[in-house]
Design a protein around this nucleic acid. Structure first.
Lengths: 239, 239
DNA sequence: CGAGGTCTTGAAGACGATCAACAAACGTGG
DNA sequence: CCACGTTTGTTGATCGTCTTCAAGACCTCG
């Protein structure tokens, strides 16, 4: 069941047989969520963490004036709230952007893993560090990149991340979310997203039609977005 | 020497005598940095991590067109690159914004701690999770808050963070950086920062003169900034 | 087939960026 | 301790980008 997590982790370091078993046995149950349903509620104190098995999800925060900011997209293989294991109180919500299947891992089990399996613990820690690294790159995008470049950048990112868990075709991937949701992630209005997409299409860089993103020329798209994949930590090395 | 780190951690959970000793002994040496000097170089592969003992520092990324985005401020008690222990390659730089004193902790020592001290490991992990939580809140700021609110928000954040390590007065704190640097952190131009500061001053919320930020009324400033301190994880609980 | 959601387009307006110039503060060396 | 030069802060004017508002087209799904 945990093949997606194994794919995520073993892309970054060797994952032993025993470690795979421990992960497999860590799952207490599987849950299903419908579109727009909250997987984790802001302000709650989870006693377990959620790993995406299938579907597209996002972390989000709501502002006083009703605005919304998505702070991360999550795909199969991602823990959406592994940090709740130590942060205790969720300072953001997690919503299902598509129908989603989740594997649930009790915090008590995680605690035991930290006592018994130091290397596996480091890999779980690593996965939260990659979250942080992606956050930093998003800060750069939202803070300093143009609208079209932000879209291009997140297209590059999702393409590589989805590739790790086998969810891409040679030059395309499914992105079954709305332009409004993408706007909430990139700090843009729906209209700006729409026009940014036109810019990418007109420049022959990428298209997004019928929930499929097609990348015309990945290298040119990366250049346009000032995209440097290092922040995704796709290198396999001892951790 | 590591009182600032003890203050940071013991604010969030009990820190045992043995754990304090381990942290104290983890320091291999102390380094000093001048203003504008790089503490960690982007693209490098550190074999040790840096804890701020004294001074103001920032993580940053440079863009192709010369723009800069600061992705975090760091104050005494913060590890500026604890994540390099597992991420291996630095995808951002760290710069000293003031003269800075740093405690150096070898990665080999950290690795040993993860094998021998699970609870201490969780606390170190926690400190990187708090980094991530702050990143998320900055994403909300840059993505959705007005210029003046962004400034107000980061003032609230720094006030609380500095308080934890005893670097505040009742309603003020030293912020010895430039408006341009603050702009690079908030995704704003110098001019916008300057006008945002005027707005805060005119509204009697906060002033920043001669490197001292004075908060006229913290509660009103927090309201104005839509500031909710939960994301700083200032609660003491078993982790 | 109808209804709600999503996408697209245009027009107007707000906000922040940029440019440029000057003032103030700071630091350094004489 | 002062003079000077550099850095930082402040202000006004202009420009461009993104937001907002609004309306219509398209699509999907019951």
């Amino acid at each position: 069941m945990m093949e997606v997590l194994s794919a995520f982790l073993s892309r970054r370091d060797d994952l032993g047989e025993e470690e795979r078993n421990q992960l497999e046995q860590a799952v207490s149950r599987v849950r299903e969520f419908a579109v727009d349903q909250d997987i984790v509620v802001e302000g709650s104190r989870p006693t377990e963490s959620c790993l995406v098995l299938e579907g597209f999800t996002a972390r989000y925060k709501l502002l006083g004036d009703g605005k919304r900011q998505l702070t991360a997209f999550h795909i199969p293989g991602d823990f959406v709230d592994l940090h709740s294991f130590l942060l205790k109180t969720m300072e953001h919500g997690v919503v299902a952007l598509t129908p989603t299947r989740i594997a649930v891992v009790p915090h008590a089990t995680l605690e035991r893993l930290t006592r018994q399996f130091p290397h596996l613990t480091r890999l779980l820690w690593l996965s939260t560090l990659i979250d942080g690294s992606i956050h930093r790159e998003w800060l750069v995008s939202i803070g300093r990149r143009s609208g079209a470049a932000r879209i291009a950048h997140v297209f590059c990112e999702l393409f590589l991340r989805l590739q790790v868990v086998g969810r891409t075709k040679p030059n395309s991937f499914r992105l079954p979310i709305t332009q409004a949701e993408l706007g909430d992630a990139l700090g843009m209005s729906v209209v700006s997203v729409n026009r940014g997409l036109q810019e990418l299409r007109d420049a022959n860089l990428a298209t997004w039609r019928g929930s499929v993103v097609t990348i015309a020329d990945l290298q040119r798209l990366e250049e346009f977005a000032d995209f440097d994949p290092r922040y995704l930590n796709l290198e396999r090395e001892p951790r």
